[in-house]
Amino acid sequence: MLNFFKNKTSQLPDFWDRYAKSFENKISEQIDDLTFVVLDTETTGFDFSKDRILCIGAIKLKNQQIEIKNGFEVYVKQDVYSNETAKIHGILKNDPEALVSELEALEQFLNYIENNILIAHHANFDLTMINNALLRHNLPALKNKYLDTSDLFKKTLIQSNLLNKKAHYSLDEIADKYAISKKDRHTAMGDAYITAIIFLKILFKLREKKAVTLKQLFK
């Protein structure tokens, strides 16, 4: 996994070790006993190499409950900035609201997520963004297992030749479908919340048909 030489030259910070160590504890196999971390990021754009994370929002979901005070929201100080995406998320460059450095944000984030399963909508995007940030600070990629609500949603649709499934379902489309209020859309935490509710609804839909194990969700 880790390059031996690299490991020697650059000692990984303590917070990473703590994070990596948390994986020594096995997580439960029962969906209702698990804590899921549902997250979303706001970024300066969609280019994995050029663009940067402006905000990470996440909430913890356990046994169909979300404790608000256990939410996670961090705004990141960045030099890269785009006026185009600012129109979407409304985060101004160096917004005074509790800005922290990227490394500090990653530290807080890793402390928060520990070994829990991550959930995001189009998870690949958010996780690649985070992994690239980790890489910039010479840190390895995230070790967590993750679920993508866009993929899970497709499992709720009937298997039928009569139905043309789309390759992707956007957060807006699914939120509309499930009549979830789209207030706070395009704030990282607001989107994380919408994603969490979508995940719960999907789980319910799937369970209605058949008992669902964690393994099946990852299939």
Partner: peptide, 12 residues
């Protein structure tokens, strides 16, 4: 900690 979700709850 005040956050986006608590704001949403308060608004409701």
């Amino acid at each position: 900690m005040k956050n986006t979700i608590s704001q949403r709850v308060a608004d409701f």
